[in-house]
Amino acid sequence: MRHLSEKKILLLILLFGLLLVFYKFISVFYFPDSDWKMSREQKIELEVNKPVIQKFRSDKNNLAALEFLFGRSSLKKVNGKIHFQILEENCTEKIADSYLTPQDINPDDSNAFTFDKIADSENKIYCLKLIFEASDSKTKNPFVFTNPNDSSDNVSLVDVSGNELKNQSLSMRPAYKSDTFWQDATELNKRISQYKPWFLKQYFLGFIIISLMLLSVLLVAILLVI
C-alpha cells in the first residue's frame, strides 16, 4: 500500500465508486407495469401480525418486485418491520419474502419489495401477504392504500379482519425484469425514448449515454493524474 502514490489511490477510488454506483443501479433494474394505477384513495391499517392478503395476476414472466404506497402520518412512530410474503395462488406455499423497516420507506414515493425473479410468472395468480411485525407494544400501525379495482388482474383483497373488500385492490404495481441485462438495457432505452424527438431516441440515445460515460470517466481520470 505504501508504494501506491496518491494518484493511484484516487484512481482506485474512482473505479471502486463507479462499481458501487452501478451495483446500486442493478439492484433497482426492474420495470414496474405502468398499466397498474396507484393512488391514495383509501387506506388499510396494518395491524400487528394480522395479514392483509391480495391475490393478483402477473401479466409477464420474470416478476421481480412489487411496489406499494405507505401512509405518511404514523410512519415515524412505527416500531417494527413490514413483512412481505409472496405465495402460490392457494396462499400456502411460500415463494419469496422480504422486509421493509420504516427507515426504508419513502411515503412520497412507491416502495418496492424485491425478490429473486420468478421466471415463469406470466398469467399466474399469486397471493401476497403484508404483515406488520411490531418490535414493541407502543408502536403505531403503518398503513397502505387501496384503489378501486378496475382490472381483472387484481383478483381479490382481504383485510386484517379477514373480510374481502369488494371492488378494491391494494395500491400496488408489479415489476418485471428481463432474461438478460441487455434486454433490460433495451427496455430502459425504449422507455426513455418515448415522447422524445428522433435525435434523443434509440441508437442516438444509446450513443449519447455511452459517450457521456466514457468522456466523463476519461475527464476525471486525467484530472486526477495531472
Binding site: 405502468s34 396507484m38 412520497d108 425504449k190 425514448s193
Partner: peptide, 22 residues
Amino acid sequence: NDPGDDLFGIINFSESYIGKSE
C-alpha cells in the same frame, strides 16, 4: 396514470420506442 405530482407517477409506457400517443 397517477394523479398529482407524486413521485410514484410514471408515464403509461408502450412496448416500443414510440409512446402510445406519440
